[in-house]
Simulated assay, not measured.
Amino acid sequence: MARNANKKILLQENRFCIYCGVDEPSTTWDHMPNKGMFPKDRPSGLEFPSCEKCNQGSKWFEDIASFIGSVQWSSVEGHITDHFEAKLGHLVRNHPDALEEMQPSISQSRRARKITDHDGNHAGALNLTGPIVSEAMLLYGAKLGLALHWETTGEVLPPSGKVGVIWFSNENAILDEVPQHLFELLPQGKQLRQGTKVSKYPFEYQSAKANDAVTTAHWATFSGAFMYYLFVSESMDFSVLPEENIHRPGCLRSPKPHSTRVGWSIGPVTLPLRND
């Protein structure tokens, strides 16, 4: 009861949804990163006032990002494996089109097999380039950018503001393809904490605010499975980024794209015999 009362007070103090650009009143408290990203132990913190449309509209891409976040190169704890199986089952039931998109090409599989761990095990691959998965990862980054901007400044990004999203897969990290010079601009990384409790899922983030107080920069990594550079501003020039990497407040209500992949099947397959 006390927890619900605290949430009600917080919503009264923060009257507008941080994801809409001062457009909708806040009616619910949203976790970002979402609870589904964590196997068991998401501590409190990074909770944000949201409207119902943004909270519910982001569920589809949170499901996909949570699955990708559960894919570990090596599992050091059993619950990580359980988490992957749970996220995979959820994707099969609710987003089979996204899972279909993730089937790797021959070249992607070959490239992955060149990567081995210390025991000589070869890597597998997921195709993250399809329209559903690509949009999901960009929107997840945009939501995180809006949330961390509000945490850093205490201000809602207005409708004229933009979020620039750059994301990297664990393949980019393994092959040292993640630019390191941006780390120098950001302070020491932070983790979710609740008293002495720290999440065993290693989500880590960093934030910095520019002198103009309307521009923020952020870096975040999700257990090494994927990572983001995020730039949020009312005035920053985003022309160096592709248009699809730039999002505005209200983008969380974007519907899931349609897949362009042709259907696939796995064998063995038994075909019915015709009796002529």
Rank of each mutant, 00 (worst) to 15 (best):
A5S: 15
A5I: 14
N6T: 05
L10K: 03
I18P: 08
Y19K: 04
Y19N: 06
G21S: 10
D23F: 06
E24T: 13
S26P: 04
G36E: 09
P39V: 00
K40V: 11
P43E: 01
G45H: 08
S50H: 12
E52I: 10
C54H: 14
C54R: 03
G57W: 00
S58M: 03
K59E: 14
E62M: 03
S66V: 01
F67S: 00
F67R: 00
S70D: 04
W73N: 09
W73D: 05
S74K: 14
V76R: 06
E77D: 14
H79S: 10
F84S: 06
E85T: 12
K87I: 02
L88H: 05
G89I: 04
L91T: 12
V92R: 15
N94G: 12
P96L: 01
P96G: 00
D97L: 11
E100C: 06
Q103K: 11
S105H: 07
I106T: 06
I106H: 08
Q108L: 09
T116W: 15
T116K: 14
T116E: 09
D117E: 11
G120V: 09
N121I: 13
L126D: 05
N127D: 12
G130N: 12
P131G: 02
P131R: 08
V133K: 01
S134Y: 09
M137A: 00
Y140F: 09
Y140C: 04
A142F: 00
K143V: 05
L144S: 05
G145P: 00
G145L: 00
A147P: 01
H149F: 08
H149A: 02
W150T: 05
T152I: 15
G154D: 11
G154Q: 09
P158R: 07
P158C: 13
S160N: 14
V163P: 00
G164F: 01
W167G: 02
S169H: 14
S169N: 10
N172M: 11
A173W: 06
L175G: 13
D176I: 09
E177Y: 08
E177K: 04
V178Q: 04
F183P: 07
L186Y: 07
L186E: 07
P187R: 03
P187T: 15
L192S: 00
L192N: 02
G195R: 04
T196I: 11
V198Y: 02
V198A: 04
E204A: 06
K209L: 06
K209E: 05
A210L: 14
A213E: 13
T215I: 05
T216L: 07
G224W: 09
A225Y: 01
M227L: 13
Y229P: 02
L230I: 13
F231L: 15
V232T: 02
V232I: 10
E234P: 02
S239T: 07
E244P: 14
N245K: 09
I246M: 02
P249I: 13
S254W: 05
S254D: 08
P255L: 10
P255I: 11
K256L: 08
H258Y: 06
S265W: 08
I266D: 09
P268S: 09
L271K: 15
P272R: 12
N275A: 08
D276K: 14
